[in-house]
Amino acid sequence: MTESTPVLKHPMAKYIRSDRQPFIYCSGCSIGIVTGMIARAIDNLDLDITKTVIVSGIGCTGRTSGYFKTGTYHTTHGRAIAFAEGVKIANPELEVIVVSGDGDMAAIGGNHLIHACRRNIDMTVICINNFTYGMTGGQFGPTTEHERYSQTSPAPVGNIEHPFNLVKLAASSGAIFVARWTAVQARRATKSIEKGIQKEGFSFIEVIGACPTEYGRMNRFGDGVTMHKHLLEVAEIQNGLPPHEAELDYENRIVCGEFVNIEKPEYTAVLREMHKKLKE
């Protein structure tokens, strides 16, 4: 070759550690798409990356933080939100974003999730829900639907348990902004992430994703493209719907939209007020 081919650079590459490429994600996985959403939200809001902190826990989504050029931290399993709370309270000037998976956030970290919702510390939590523990090979988790197959819920019965609906969980725990989208609704999801970042308080955005390698394979959902097409087909946008009606039935109907958008005194703001009062 004598002519050099022009190298096209991804517009979001400036936020990503290129020396850590390629991503560890399998082909057909949704996590890369959501990583892009977060980068775009940062870009659209023109956040100062030196004042932005991205935290994640353990698992496939848990690896996401490490690809960003912001301050990033990879915690122990389930503890991303607890870590992020310490960061935000100790330095309220920082923009704190947590991204982790359904197992990390709703099983081992479930207690931290509900209490952080209640406490209302300003942070944006993005949960990529792919209904399985992907990193460990596809076991059922806290969002796996009843009777679905996994490495630990084999045929003939499948999953004996019943799933959490994370929108309902976050809303009833006190989050001030709650949304759900699927990974294919990238523009809408990105907008919600931006809103979550801008809101002063605890924002929770669930992004329904596909794990074709494990969950999809075991439940015969097809490859990554097929799974994402399915998400588009069953996504039903119902902005403003009361959160307790935000049903998630993977086969037929995934209700998407922004369900909670309220105001409530934010933890670090109240703490600052307390500091002021004590000085007077």
Partner: peptide, 19 residues
Amino acid sequence: VQYEDEIASITSVIGASWT
């Protein structure tokens, strides 16, 4: 900050220290 358990407590302390 009073946390929901000691696990959150120590992890938040790590987070605070990194600021």
